[in-house]
Nucleic acid binder design. Structure first.
Lengths: 158, 158
DNA sequence: TATTGTTATACTCTATAACTATA
DNA sequence: TATAGTTATAGAGTATAACAATA
C-alpha cells in the first residue's frame, strides 16, 4: 500500500483529510470493509449479505411473515421477494400459507436451511472476531450500542 | 409504527432478533438511517453522498489526483470518473493537467464549488447534530474511533 | 513495464407505482 | 378500505476488463 510516487502532494490517505468529516463518511468506509469481508466469508456457502441475513432471521424467528422480515431487514417488500424466492428455490426455507389469514406466508427454515445457517453463522463469527480484533470488548459493545441508537432515531428525523 | 394486527407471532422488530446478529447487520441499518438523512439534507444542493464527499475532499485537499481521491473515498477509479465529470460540468471543480506528469489531473474547487461546499457542510453538520442527539460526546467519539479501527484493519483481512 | 484516466459492461442493491388476492 | 405479496421498472452504487496516453 505504498503511496504513488507522483509530483502531486503526498498521497492523501483517508486519515489525512481530517477537516470537515461527517459520520456517514466513517460509517461507509467501515461498512465497506465489513461487507467485503462478509462477501468473501459467505461465498463458499453461496450466500450474499442479504440472503444470509434473511436466512438467519428466518431460522431464529420461524413463522414470521415477509413484511415482518422486510421490516427487520430494512428492505422494501418488493426487494425482499427475490431474496425469499432464492432461498425457497434452494430448498433452504418454506413459504407456508397461514389458514387464519391467507394473505400471509409464514416463513420457516428447512433442515438444510438450518444446517447451512449454522455453518455460515460460525464462519461469519470467526471472521468477525478477526476483523474486530483491534477493538476491546468495551469499545466494540459501545459501538454497537451507538449504532442501535442511531437506528432508533430513524422515526425522529427532521 | 404500530405492528400489524396479524395472527402470526407479534411483529418482529429488529431489536427482538438478538440471536446470532453480526456487526454488519447493525452497521448497515445505522448507515441506512444516516444516508437517508444525508440524501434529504443534500437534495437542496443537488448533491448526493458521493458527489458531496468528493467535493469536500477536493476543497480541503486542492491538487489531489483522481486516484488519490478514489482511494480516499474507497471507490474504484472507473466509478469516480462520472462523479468528477458531474462536479466539473457544474463548474464546481477544475481538472488541471500537471506539467511534470501529464497523466495526472490535479483537482481543485472553483469559487462556486467552495461556496456550495461551505453551505452544504453547514447543513450536514446541523442535521448530524440532530441525528446523533441521542449520543453523548464520549459515545459518539468512541464509535467513530472504532469505525476508523475497522477501516484500518482492511489490509489485514484473511 | 507500470500508472492515470477512461470506456464499456454487468451485477447488485434500492425505490416506486401498480396489480392480485385476501381481509 | 386496507394489507400481504407480487410484478415491472428505473435508478443508484459497485466491480472488472481492456484501452490510450504517459511515465
Amino acid at each position: 500500500m505504498a503511496g504513488p510516487k507522483s509530483t502531486t502532494p503526498d498521497s492523501f490517505r483517508a486519515d489525512d483529510t481530517t477537516l470537515r468529516q461527517f459520520v456517514g463518511y466513517h460509517m461507509k468506509r467501515a461498512f465497506n470493509v465489513v461487507q467485503a469481508d462478509l462477501t468473501q466469508t459467505l461465498k463458499p456457502f453461496d450466500l450474499r449479505m442479504l440472503t444470509y441475513t434473511a436466512l438467519v432471521l428466518i431460522v431464529d424467528n420461524p413463522g414470521l411473515s415477509q413484511s415482518q422480515l422486510a421490516d427487520a431487514m430494512d428492505v422494501e417488500r418488493p426487494n425482499l421477494v427475490v431474496i425469499v424466492d432464492e432461498l425457497e428455490q434452494r430448498g433452504l426455507i418454506l413459504r407456508d400459507r397461514v389458514p387464519t389469514d391467507r394473505r400471509i406466508y409464514a416463513l420457516s427454515a428447512t433442515l438444510a436451511g438450518c444446517q447451512l445457517c449454522a455453518r455460515a453463522v460460525e464462519a461469519v463469527a470467526g471472521h468477525e472476531r478477526i476483523l474486530l480484533a483491534g477493538l476491546d470488548t468495551e469499545t466494540k459493545d459501545g459501538m454497537i450500542a451507538a449504532l442501535q441508537v442511531i437506528q432508533t432515531s430513524k422515526g425522529g428525523k427532521i
